[in-house]
């Protein structure tokens, strides 16, 4: 636990203090959110596999990357650590660039069958 996120254990111990009611509610919502976004990744994977056109496949891949960024953001909120937060910015910029490149490719290709 200490090699990836630094000292996680004192953060977890510090998270036990404070106001327990709102903290417990936030932790519950985070736990629900992990399930929801994992289901969302699976749904986008369905569209990625069976999408009839290339536009659907590229769109599903972009949505999967956004959902992964959301999962990283949930990790940031839970552990209150800035170590993994830069992933959100990097994934956002890469998603924008890849969408642009994909649109250029499709327009140059002329057909998306």
């Amino acid at each position: 636990m200490t090699n990836l996120f630094g000292n996680v254990a004192p953060l977890l111990l510090a998270a036990e203090g404070g106001t327990p009611w709102t903290r417990g509610l936030l932790d519950t919502v985070i736990a629900i959110g992990i399930v929801l976004m994992s289901v969302g990744v699976l749904l986008c994977m369905i569209r990625l596999l069976k999408g009839p056109t290339l536009v659907d496949r590229g769109l599903a891949a972009d949505t999967i990357s956004i959902q992964i960024a959301g999962l990283v953001l949930l990790l940031t909120i839970r552990f209150e650590s800035l170590v993994v937060f830069d992933v959100v910015l990097v994934v956002g910029i890469l998603g924008f660039a890849s969408t642009l490149a994909f649109a250029q490719y499709l327009g140059r290709r002329g057909s998306a069958a």
């Binding site: 903290r23 509610l25 919502v29 569209r47 949505t63």
Partner: peptide, 28 residues
């Protein structure tokens, strides 16, 4: 202000998760 901020963060997080899941359902 930690309690108030956590409550507002919970509401905002629930809204964000709603839109994330609705987007994934809509893609399918």
């Amino acid at each position: 202000t930690a309690g108030v901020r956590d409550l507002l963060a919970t509401i905002s997080l629930a809204g964000g998760l709603f839109f994330m899941f609705v987007g994934a359902v809509g893609v399918v």
